Amino acid sequence: MDFSGKDKATYVQETFNSIAKRYDLMNSLMSFGLDKGWRRKAVQTVEAKPGMKMVDICCGTAQLSLELAMTVGEQGHVTGLDFSENMLGKAKENLATSPYRAIIELRQGDAMNLPFADNSFDGATVGWGLRNLPDLERGVREMVRVVKPGCMVVSLDMAKPTMPGFKQGYWLYFNKLVPLMGKIWAGKGKAYQYLHDSAVEFPAQQELARIFARCGLTDSRYIDLAGGVVAIVCGRKPKNN
């Protein structure tokens, strides 16, 4: 993948800063409006309950953070962390009129070195974020570190469909049409080409589940959505003996 002479972290930060304003619109267009349902499924998988304290890594415009807040309620708390200041700015706009804004804290920070103590949260999510990290396993291990024993770590991200015909059509759509949509609707065709390229290089859902296990999570598994175009990968931090 060509980062134009920059390290991946810098390139990704600049890319997401550039597309922040149209990010939510493009997500809805690219997913044909299915992305909201996928986020709800991720919240179910992380086993969020009223009163819990959750963390959403690479929170972007806070759409997944908001879904978490709707579940944990006014007695709970959600921390959303992202390193793109423009994405966080859009997140603040999204939350400005939300009845859940008081229980969502937005912080700028690095997923490679989370600014939280060990065993701080009742669950951790990351939506379309792991593939942007310069060291995927380190990012997963950081999420494992900050959740309490017995709690879930959940990733929602692009996956790799395997159905013949459908698989080829999907990659054609993602490689050709998505960058064109990004150019038309967001004026950022190159940024959306990166989204395709990062999805190609991202481990398939089966491999990501194995990475979760390697990072210390038990019962690691994946759930295919939309025919395997998107997948939830999850695992549980072992309980203390």
Results as ranks from 00 to 15, higher is better:
residue 233 V to M: 08
residue 154 V to Q: 09
residue 132 N to T: 13
residue 100 Y to Q: 01
residue 114 L to A: 13
residue 18 S to N: 03
residue 111 A to H: 05
residue 56 D to C: 05
residue 166 F to Y: 14
residue 174 F to N: 04
residue 7 D to S: 06
residue 210 R to W: 10
residue 47 E to L: 13
residue 19 I to V: 13
residue 160 K to R: 15
residue 185 W to A: 13
residue 96 A to L: 13
residue 104 I to S: 06
residue 24 D to V: 13
residue 225 L to K: 09
residue 6 K to W: 09
residue 172 L to G: 11
residue 213 A to V: 02
residue 59 C to F: 02
residue 189 G to M: 08
residue 241 N to L: 13
residue 132 N to G: 07
residue 111 A to I: 12
residue 198 S to G: 04
residue 6 K to N: 13
residue 29 L to V: 05
residue 150 G to K: 03
residue 101 R to Q: 06
residue 73 G to C: 12
residue 70 M to S: 08
residue 225 L to W: 04
residue 106 L to S: 01
residue 148 K to Y: 11
residue 109 G to V: 01
residue 60 G to P: 00
residue 33 G to W: 12
residue 164 P to S: 12
residue 212 F to Q: 04
residue 167 K to G: 04
residue 160 K to C: 09
residue 43 V to A: 04
residue 31 S to P: 07
residue 9 A to N: 09
residue 64 L to P: 03
residue 176 K to Y: 12
residue 6 K to H: 08
residue 100 Y to N: 13
residue 142 E to A: 02
residue 58 C to H: 03
residue 158 M to I: 15
residue 205 Q to D: 03
residue 38 W to M: 12
residue 121 F to L: 03
residue 222 Y to R: 03
residue 140 V to E: 00
residue 88 L to Y: 00
residue 63 Q to M: 09
residue 87 M to S: 05
residue 42 A to W: 00
residue 98 S to K: 09
residue 41 K to Q: 10
residue 25 L to G: 00
residue 206 Q to L: 05
residue 187 G to C: 05
residue 105 E to I: 10
residue 47 E to Q: 15
residue 216 G to L: 10
residue 193 Q to G: 05
residue 86 N to S: 07
residue 124 A to L: 10
residue 199 A to L: 09
residue 171 W to T: 02
residue 49 K to M: 11
residue 110 D to W: 04
residue 8 K to Y: 11
residue 97 T to C: 15
residue 205 Q to A: 15
residue 84 S to F: 03
residue 28 S to M: 11
residue 156 L to S: 09
residue 75 Q to D: 11
residue 98 S to C: 13
residue 45 T to E: 14
residue 134 P to F: 01
residue 24 D to F: 03
residue 203 P to R: 01
residue 9 A to C: 05
residue 122 D to C: 13
residue 175 N to V: 02
residue 42 A to H: 01
residue 223 I to T: 14
residue 101 R to K: 14
residue 184 I to C: 01
residue 24 D to S: 02
residue 153 V to Q: 06
residue 124 A to C: 01
residue 169 G to N: 10
residue 240 N to T: 15
residue 175 N to W: 13
residue 32 F to A: 12
residue 134 P to V: 12
residue 195 L to Y: 07
residue 170 Y to T: 04
residue 5 G to E: 11
residue 123 G to D: 02
residue 61 T to H: 06
residue 171 W to M: 10
residue 233 V to H: 05
residue 92 K to I: 07
residue 94 N to G: 15
residue 101 R to H: 14
residue 36 K to E: 10
residue 224 D to Y: 03
residue 169 G to D: 06
residue 183 K to G: 15
residue 53 K to F: 03
